[in-house]
Amino acid sequence: MVHFEHPLNERIRKFLRLEFVLTQARHPLHGRTAWDARATLGHLLEILDTLGRSDIKSELIAELDRQSQHLERLRQRDGVDQSQLSEVITRLRQLVDRLHALPGQPGYALRHHELLTTFRQRAAIPGGAAPFDLPALHCWLNQPHEKRQLQLEHWLGEFDLLAECVETHNRLIRETARRSQEVAHQGCFEQTLDPERPYQMLRISLPSDSGLFPEISAGRHRLTLRFMHQPDLSQRVVLYRENVPFRLACCGMMS
């Protein structure tokens, strides 16, 4: 199945983007060429740009605290696995404690790193990070793989706690979902959402070989889906005018 996720507020939008760039940065890290190292550096800069000027540490502390308080209320419900619940709550509290102990914002030191700053300035110019533009970077990229690898792992390690917190937060959102099997008649689907339930994200799942993807419009009260396809990638996408079975998950912590 292919899962298409749609955030329903700016906070979860930010956390989904962070999850994406943090995961993406780890992929070329396993490569052994200078091109892999260059790609990792590019993704590292993308992480820093995604963080921007926001106080991500305070935002995560508030969100993880909120999730912990919600789970505490579940202790009063019958049929809840108390052992597993306690384990999750303990993990959330440990993450919050580690965030409080973290000096400054994640990646703060890298914002003032000379090599990374120079690379960022030149990378904003198309083709501006060529070897003759950045001889210092070219020299570093041609160091032995093992030496490059240690440095890259050290730089990315600045975001290990951030990645752990974001992954934990997003996973709990995904797991707290109302799931249903639906059909979009002639490619279109509408559903009224319960405004009393603070859904944070929608998750639409389709078979990977369907060749379809959803255009999603959603607010506090209503969800609208139009299933599209693009038989020829050089042409515009069009509405798929057949019935489309799909799985819908409305994700978010209950109040």
Rank of each mutant, 00 (worst) to 15 (best):
Q191R: 13
L206D: 10
V244Q: 10
R197Y: 12
H229L: 06
M201T: 05
L223G: 06
P214R: 09
F159Q: 09
Q149H: 15
P214C: 07
A184P: 06
F246A: 03
Q181P: 01
H185N: 06
F227H: 12
R226T: 02
P144W: 07
C188M: 12
Q200G: 12
R241M: 05
N170R: 09
W155Y: 09
I173A: 05
S205E: 15
V244T: 10
V166A: 08
E146A: 13
G211E: 10
E153M: 11
H145E: 15
L225P: 06
Q191P: 03
H169S: 04
Q181N: 09
M228I: 02
A184D: 10
A218C: 15
E196L: 10
R197I: 11
K147W: 06
V238Q: 15
Q230A: 06
V244F: 06
M228E: 11
H154E: 15
H145K: 03
L152V: 05
A177C: 11
C188Q: 15
E153I: 04
F213A: 11
Q230K: 14
R247Q: 12
A136V: 11
P144E: 02
S205G: 13
L161A: 04
L150K: 14
I204D: 13
P214E: 10
L150V: 11
L225T: 06
R236S: 10
R236M: 04
A163I: 01
I173L: 12
L156T: 04
R203S: 15
W155P: 01
P144S: 01
G219V: 11
C188R: 15
L162K: 03
G157V: 01
